[in-house]
Nucleic acid binder design. Structure first.
Lengths: 183, 183
DNA sequence: CGAAAGTAATTAGATTATCTAACTAAAATC
DNA sequence: GATTTTAGTTAGATAATCTAATTACTTTCG
């Protein structure tokens, strides 16, 4: 009769709450009629956000990496020669603090996916690069990444996908402007 | 000449990377043409997710609460009498472990926003309820919540909003189904 | 009945991803 | 050459989670 042996469970687990009750709550508490529609839309976004990354990290976990760490590796992959990459530049581009980058690099370096080298020109600086093993990991992770992305929208019709893309682009533009994100 | 006094900054901070270079990377690495369009769309979602919650927590922070904690309070607010709310049921509905709920409740209880009471019928169980102060907080937080939601989409035309809502609902449905979320 | 099994909540200890503030060492400026 | 600025790291914190073990009840079943 028991389902999960010694693991935690309730006799008849309540379903995780969907978005509907929240919308009802909003109807009772949102100030104006006009606000409601856009709040509804915004709520959908917040809701989606909650679930989208879960899906991504679940797919990536067999590779032993999370999205935020993969992100740093992607940055190194995207970097085409020229100016070397420094922890500071990574921090700027990821929008996090240098101290946080140090932690990420420690983790990635321990696994031999990136390497650090002191700059000759300015000995305060560190040049960060991705190792061949790191590239290999990225090579494995990308298809997972893309197919997870794709699967999120796979049951939409082409027209819906087109509409969705237009809308999401617009949203993205808006949010990037708001947060001051560059190219 | 210095901009931020003793704070951390780079002489000319590289812009935080937008979505475009990632899309280019995908073009180089995604297997098939057909996958690309949907991957593009999915990537937009992942991207949005990254930024949406930031916006929300920034707005909520003056109230001294974060979205995930507010979520628990909303659950208690939504609860209309009947069966008492237990930590287990909260865990199920929030989709997290009971141990995590314990931590959230400790935090909320310390601030007098919720209270715990041992059940008479089954003395293993705890009944959780929101205090008047908790209700007051929710009362203040909700307008912030809704207006942040609304502001995310405020510069769309009505038609765009309509299209967006349709699309996001569809996405939401899909994701809820996938994760087994109930009403 | 009373022992064994099941359940609810908590505790202890860990992880991930962040943060701020203080520190070290090097470079630039005046 | 002393001061200031910068790059990176360290130290220590927080939030939101997790798993495993523990405690205290309740239920079940021989």
């Amino acid at each position: 009769m028991s389902r999960k042996n010694n693991k935690e469970f309730t006799s008849d687990p309540l379903p995780k709450l969907g978005i509907t009750p929240y919308l009802e709550l909003m109807d009772q508490t949102a100030p104006k009629e006009t606000d409601r529609k856009s709040a509804h839309l915004g709520l959908l976004m917040v809701w989606l956000r909650d679930h989208v990354l879960d899906a991504m990290d679940v797919e990536l976990s067999p590779l032993g990496i999370t999205e935020s760490k993969l992100d740093l590796l992607l940055l190194l992959t995207l970097h085409n020669g020229r100016e070397p990459v420094t922890p500071s530049s990574l921090a700027d581009r990821l929008g996090i603090r240098r101290a946080s980058v140090t932690a990420l690099l420690d983790w990635l370096e321990k696994r031999k996916w990136v390497s650090r080298e002191q700059s000759e020109r300015d000995r305060r600086m560190i040049h960060v690069s991705i190792t061949p093993e790191g590239r290999e990991l990225v090579h494995q992770a990308l298809p997972v990444f893309w197919s997870t992305c794709a699967s999120l929208v796979s049951d939409m019709t082409p027209e819906e996908q087109k509409a969705a893309e237009h809308i999401l682009n617009k949203l993205n533009e808006r949010i990037e402007k708001r947060l001051g994100v560059g190219r």
